[in-house]
Simulated scan of single mutants.
Amino acid sequence: MADVFTTRTLDIPTGSAETVHDLTAACAEFLDQTAHGRDGLLNVFVPHATAGVAVMETGAGSDDDLLSALHDLLPADDRWRHRHGSPGHGRDHVLPALVPPHATLPVIAGHLELGTWQSVVLVDTNKDNVNRQVRLSFLG
């Protein structure tokens, strides 16, 4: 049985532009304060209907490549039935079906076990919501 379950909510200002926001350092800091060298799981959850969490390489153009691919898959035009907010906002409500609002990641000896080039990111294409919350939960 797990010894600890701890949750913290981060407030992330994403601004009014589409963004891929790196959460890796915030996840590491949370684990430094809560995991105390234990093995376990880190759950990253975005409690929003128009944002997601991904594990991917950041930098070297990957962030922009993801946003470009999402534009190709989910164009910001008037095809969407969900029609409040900015033009094309309905696509933002489809995003979590492609980029889920959560990720559960291994923690070994208190450290996030990611691959060499992997980062944990918040993916937000909703220009109408300039602030996001991300819930980090450690079970270990």
Rank of each mutant, 00 (worst) to 15 (best):
V4C: 13
L67I: 01
I108G: 01
D63F: 04
T104F: 01
H84Q: 12
S137H: 03
P96D: 07
A17C: 05
D77T: 08
E18S: 04
F5V: 15
G88H: 09
A54N: 09
T19M: 08
G115D: 10
H89D: 12
P106S: 03
L98F: 14
L66C: 00
V123W: 13
A49T: 15
L136E: 08
H84Y: 07
Q33L: 15
H21E: 06
D63R: 01
V121G: 02
G90R: 14
L67M: 02
H111F: 03
P47E: 07
A76E: 13
L31D: 13
V120C: 00
A28G: 04
L42G: 01
W80G: 10
R83M: 07
L42H: 04
V46R: 03
C27R: 05
D72R: 14
A54R: 10
H82Y: 10
V130H: 14
P75W: 02
L105A: 00
P75Q: 03
P96W: 07
G140N: 13
H21V: 07
V44F: 05
A26T: 00
E29H: 14
G115Y: 12
Q133V: 01
F138K: 04
A49C: 11
H21C: 05
V94T: 09
H48I: 08
R132V: 05
H89E: 03
V107E: 01
Q118E: 09
G52N: 09
V130Y: 02
D3F: 11
D22A: 03
I108V: 15
L73P: 03
E57H: 08
M56H: 01
V121D: 03
Q133M: 03
R91L: 03
L73W: 02
S62H: 09
D11S: 15
L66H: 00
D78H: 11
R8C: 10
T125V: 06
E29F: 04
T125E: 08
V20L: 12
Q118S: 07
L67T: 07
R135K: 15
T50V: 09
V130L: 14
L41V: 13
D11F: 12
D3T: 14
D32K: 10
P87D: 12
A28H: 15
L112P: 02
H21K: 01
V120E: 01
R38E: 15
L112M: 02
F30A: 09
L74I: 13
T9W: 11
L136M: 09
V107H: 02
D64C: 06
G52Q: 05
P87I: 11
L42F: 01
S137Y: 06
N131F: 10
V134Y: 11
C27T: 05
E113I: 04
T104N: 04
F30S: 01
L114T: 03
P47M: 11
H71L: 04
H111L: 10
G15K: 01
D92C: 14
G37K: 12
V130S: 13
V20W: 10
R83V: 06
H36R: 15
F30T: 10
D63G: 09
L23W: 13
D78T: 09
R38Y: 02
G15W: 05
A69F: 01
L139A: 06
F138I: 01
M1S: 14
D22L: 00
S68M: 08
T104G: 05
D39F: 00
H84N: 08
L67A: 04
T34Q: 14
D124P: 01
